[in-house]
Design a protein around this nucleic acid. Structure first.
Length: 485
DNA sequence: TTTTGAGTTGTTCGA
DNA sequence: GTCGAACAACTCAAA
């Protein structure tokens, strides 16, 4: 049987991989696994040294996993089309298989690749793998794409109930002769990049381990308490799977399957657990939702989903933006979150909402500045989800109720970090401040400042803006574009 | 075609 | 301290 090239992109795993499974079937296991380092991804608009480091770590893990099958990952650098054609010619492969990606850039690239391969007499097949349901699988009665989450999710669940969610068993791969070895996976330094922060354990095995830990009903916090604990940034109450899902070290079907399996073991199902499972599955639906929004409304990468909001009069004060980025706004929950992002390449979801509201409403900085900053630093940074989240927070997105959503950074802190666990962890200069003042350190009396060893304005900044005043200003600015079309 | 119900995650105010 | 209502109107999706 002829060899088939499997083109790895954001599906860096062997198990539950749609295109790889198909390639193994079509080739009798004689798959040539290839990854192509594309300059556009390394240095393009949303490039990120951290995410590149994370990519390289996961490529190394994938190469390790392939060695167990007597294979190696073939690594090429350059233009995907040229590299694939060259590799097919050198290897005598009959075709190329890959899993679909849905950003405008990826669609353009893949369409060109598919046409060129077929013009050269090669097979070219793409597969659904990165989402549960893709672009046109969840549509309204009228056949149009959804732009509101709740009805989308209802239909998504209907379809899931009807179709179920099957994972692919590990494919049978047979070691081909040691051809072609290709260059080793480069280090970050080889690419002229630098990233000094620790990364999570990379690879499919680590991803499955993290999933297993999360869905263990005995382990708390975990999926059993997800609905409640997910709200507290100081708690490890979320799955922390996003960096793995980003590169496909974990497959989305595998993740969903794990939750669905728990639903079908009723012996342990309490209302709390059922609620938590629903909630978490709902988050996976959100992920599909935003992929689908970006596919059908690609203009969101340039401007507001609701175009009238392109007229918002941002102030874009560079000093305020810098203070936000560096975590010195004088609002402890905001600063803790922004420092977590810088230190870990990850931020808790509740915190993402708080800092996004603060940037767009309190500071009146264009949400695209926040979007870019997040893409630069987040290991899980994904164009669709990140854009959707920012537009939601900025009130320019698919959600209908932007006016109700100016977060008060003090009450958010008091509500979701009451003891200050999160703030104390990431803003150590406030570690000794009593809980009562932790989210309002500027109200700390002089005597208590001395007792706590923190002088406000010196050791920790005073608030850079007055929330009440800025809230009023934001309502004003947003009011100007309201209803304009 | 028209009508109807609903819209992730909030805040503030006044009783 | 707690609770319900107002916030402003609009668009979406389905019946």
């Amino acid at each position: 049987m002829p060899r088939i090239i499997h083109w790895f992109r954001r599906d860096l795993r062997l198990g539950d991989n749609a295109a790889l499974t198909a390639a193994a079937h079509a080739s009798g296991g004689a798959v040539l696994p290839v990854f192509i380092l594309d300059e556009a991804i390394l240095f393009g608009r949303f490039a990120s040294p951290g995410r590149t480091a994370w990519l390289l770590a996961n490529l190394r893990a994938l190469d390790e996993a392939l060695r167990a099958h007597g294979m190696r990952l073939i690594l090429r650098r350059g233009d995907p089309l040229r590299e694939l054609l060259a590799l097919a010619r050198e290897s005598g492969a009959a075709g190329v298989y890959w899993n679909r990606d849905y950003t405008p850039y990826a669609i353009r690239r893949d369409t060109a690749v598919k046409e060129a391969l077929r013009a050269s007499g090669l097979a070219a097949h793409s597969f659904k793998d990165a989402v549960i349901f893709e672009m046109n699988e969840v549509l309204t009665e009228a056949g149009t794409p959804y732009s509101v989450y709740t009805p989308y999710a209802r239909r998504w669940r209907q379809r899931l109930a009807a179709e179920g969610c099957l994972t692919y068993p590990p494919p049978q791969l047979i070691p081909s002769e040691p051809w072609p070895a290709g260059p080793l996976i480069p280090t970050l330094g080889d690419l002229g990049l630098r990233y000094d922060l620790p990364l999570p354990p990379a690879g499919e095995a680590a991803a499955r381990e993290r999933l297993a830990m999360f869905v263990d009903l005995q382990r708390l916090p975990g999926i059993a308490t997800y609905a409640e604990q997910r709200e507290y940034p100081g708690s490890d109450g979320t799955s922390r799977l996003s960096p793995y899902l980003r590169l496909g070290a974990l497959g989305i079907r595998t993740a969903l399957r794990a939750a669905l399996d728990l639903e079908t073991t009723p012996a342990t199902l309490t209302p709390q657990i059922r609620d938590s499972l629903n909630r978490w599955v709902g988050e996976l639906a959100w992920r599909d939702f935003y992929v689908q929004v970006l596919y059908h409304f690609p203009h969101v990468l340039r401007g507001a989903f609701k175009r009238e909001y392109d007229a918002l009069e941002w102030e874009n004060d560079p000093d305020l933006l810098a203070a936000w980025q560096e975590g010195r706004t004088g609002y402890p929950i905001v600063d803790a979150a922004m420092r977590q992002l810088r230190q870990e390449g990850w931020m808790h979801n509740r915190a993402r909402m708080i800092v996004a509201s603060f940037l767009t409403r309190d500071l009146l900085v264009d949400w695209r500045q926040g979007e870019r900053h997040f893409m630069r630093l987040l290991l899980d940074g994904d164009p669709a989800a990140n854009n959707g989240g920012w537009q939601w927070a900025a009130g320019t997105g698919t959600d209908a109720q932007p006016y109700f959503r100016i977060f008060n950074p003090v009450s958010q802190g008091q509500k979701f970090d009451p003891e200050g666990v999160y703030v104390r962890r990431y803003v150590p200069e406030l570690a000794t401040v009593p809980a009562k003042y932790l989210h309002t350190p500027h109200l700390l009396p002089q005597a208590e400042q001395i007792r706590a060893g923190v002088l406000l304005g010196r050791d920790y900044p005073l608030p850079i803006v007055d929330h009440q005043a800025r809230r009023a200003r934001a309502l004003d600015v947003y009011g100007k574009v309201k209803g304009k079309r």
